[in-house]
Design a protein around this nucleic acid. Structure first.
Lengths: 149, 149
DNA sequence: TCCTATTTAGTAATAATTACTATTTACCAT
DNA sequence: ATGGTAAATAGTAATTATTACTAAATAGGA
């Protein structure tokens, strides 16, 4: 369900960002894909219609799209690999501000029933739930910031 | 809950891998941390006791620890950032073999109740569930492989 | 204790991301 | 509609994470 050109333009302008043909083309390429594309994927696709496109613009645009809330990065921890020796079932609380990852133990979350049609598609080995939010430290800092202005 | 030296040694040897002091030290550093450390984090920590340690060994050891099943990478998609313009609530099926990511829509998964004590710790904005398994293509290939031997 | 295949350390190569700068452009004020 | 200006783009360079390669060291069986 893509947004129209006018809707995208509006989103950019309401956030004080400029609306450019590159930005729109990148949005279209992303919204039109079911592959959860990488930066490189989007670059290759959009380059066909915008031969002078630079990687930089793709990176920049993806940040803007996230800032205005019409796209998101699904690989939250992509910057570097992160490991865990804890093999017991557990889930994670991820702080969107400081990137801290904390463990969450909750039996009721360990056994999620998957719909039959999903089970047909995939042979599921396990699952992990990422809760996104703000840790106690960052919660406090954000409130302070809000009150100040 | 760390494994003892003898337990770790046994795990390595049962898989035909050699047990080395570096490997044990890296396991201990990982199992002793609550920070979900990166390769660099582990390198810095273990370097103190093993001054000649190389990054390579850390990478290598982390692969081995995963192979023998006493550690896991929690950042499944860390290799490159992946994006999505779909802002509707949904979850992901990740194929452990071909790394494909497919969307999963399931209303019952969209509203997970978090325990009160977790809510106190974090202000949660949302959550996303990653199901890990094998897609239909890879499922078939794995079965074929099993039958062959 | 010796042998050998594996592992390690060190360096080099590759890939993803970020930083920097001159040029271009969107869009506001005129 | 035009011009001015701050922001965006393109291109290149720098940085960072990861992988590849090789000689030296070592675990663990004979």
């Amino acid at each position: 369900m893509q947004l129209t050109l006018e809707q995208v333009r509006k989103q950019f302008q309401e956030c004080g960002l400029k609306f450019t043909s590159q930005r729109y083309a990148i949005y279209r390429a992303l919204a039109g894909s079911k592959e959860h594309p990488s930066v490189e994927d989007l670059y290759s696709t959009v380059k066909k219609a915008h031969p002078t496109l630079s990687m930089n613009t793709v990176y920049n645009t993806l940040e803007s799209l996230q800032a205005i809330g019409i796209a998101s990065e699904i690989s939250l921890w992509h910057d570097k690999a992160r490991f865990d020796a804890n093999q017991a079932p557990h889930h994670h609380l991820v702080c969107l501000r400081c990137k801290k990852i904390e463990d969450l133990y909750d039996d009721t979350l360990d056994s999620l029933a998957l719909s039959p049609k999903a089970k047909q598609r995939y042979r599921i080995i396990g699952h992990r739930i990422e809760f996104h939010g703000y840790c106690s430290d960052c919660k406090a800092k954000i409130n302070k910031h809000k009150k100040r202005r």
